[in-house]
C-alpha cells in the first residue's frame, strides 16, 4: 500500500490520528491511550499486516516523552512509524505491545530502564541493563550523573 492509501485506511478507523510525512517514512501521531488498538489493527488486518516491529524506542522532548514504534510488513513491504506522546513526564505510563510483538518485551524493558516509562500489563517490568538499585533514568535529558568525570 502506498502512504496515501495507508493514511486513508487508518483515518477511517482512527479519526484522531495526525500524520507527518517530512521524514523518509510515514509518521502516525497518536494519543498514548489509543496506541494499543491502533497497533493491534496494524498487526492483524490482512491488508496492513505490519508484523515486524524493528525498532522501539523513546525520545525525551523535555516537556513530554515520545514513544516511537517502527513497523514494517514483511508481506506488503510498507513501513510506518507510530509516535505516541506521553504528557506525564514524572510518572509516564503506556500500554505494552509485547503480547503483539514478542520482541517488544526486551525493548520495553530497556525503555523502562533508561527512560522510566512504565508499560502497563508488561509481564516482567524490571530493569534490564542497569542494577535494580539504580536511581534515575540515564537517557532522560534531566538526568545528572554525579559520578561523571569530565575531562
Amino acid at each position: 500500500m502506498t502512504n496515501e492509501e495507508l493514511k486513508q485506511y487508518i483515518s477511517a478507523l482512527f479519526p484522531t490520528v495526525t500524520y507527518d510525512e517530512t521524514g523518509e517514512f510515514l509518521n502516525i501521531l497518536i494519543a498514548s491511550t489509543e496506541l494499543k488498538p491502533l497497533i493491534k489493527t496494524l498487526r492483524y488486518e490482512d491488508d496492513l499486516k505490519f508484523n515486524f516491529l524493528f525498532c522501539l524506542t523513546c525520545i525525551d522532548w523535555k516537556t513530554n516523552l515520545m514513544m516511537v514504534y517502527h513497523l514494517i510488513s514483511k508481506t506488503h513491504k510498507h513501513i510506518v512509524v507510530i509516535k505516541a506522546k506521553i504528557a506525564d513526564v514524572v510518572k509516564p505510563e503506556i500500554e505494552t505491545v509485547c503480547d503483539i510483538y514478542q520482541t517488544a518485551n526486551f525493548h520495553e524493558r530497556e525503555v523502562y530502564d533508561l527512560f522510566g516509562v512504565n508499560f502497563k500489563n508488561h509481564p516482567d517490568m524490571r530493569r534490564l541493563l542497569l542494577d535494580e538499585s539504580w536511581e534515575g533514568y540515564p537517557l532522560r535529558k534531566n538526568y545528572v550523573d554525579e559520578n561523571m568525570i569530565t575531562i
Binding site: F54, C55, T57, I59, D60, H70, Q102, T103, N105, F106, H107, E110, L139
Partner: peptide, 15 residues
C-alpha cells in the same frame, strides 16, 4: 539529540 541503535543481537537474544 537522541541516537538509538537497533542492535541485531538484542532482538536475537530475546528469542
Amino acid at each position: 539529540y537522541r541516537i538509538k541503535y537497533r542492535s541485531p543481537n538484542f532482538s536475537n537474544l530475546s528469542a
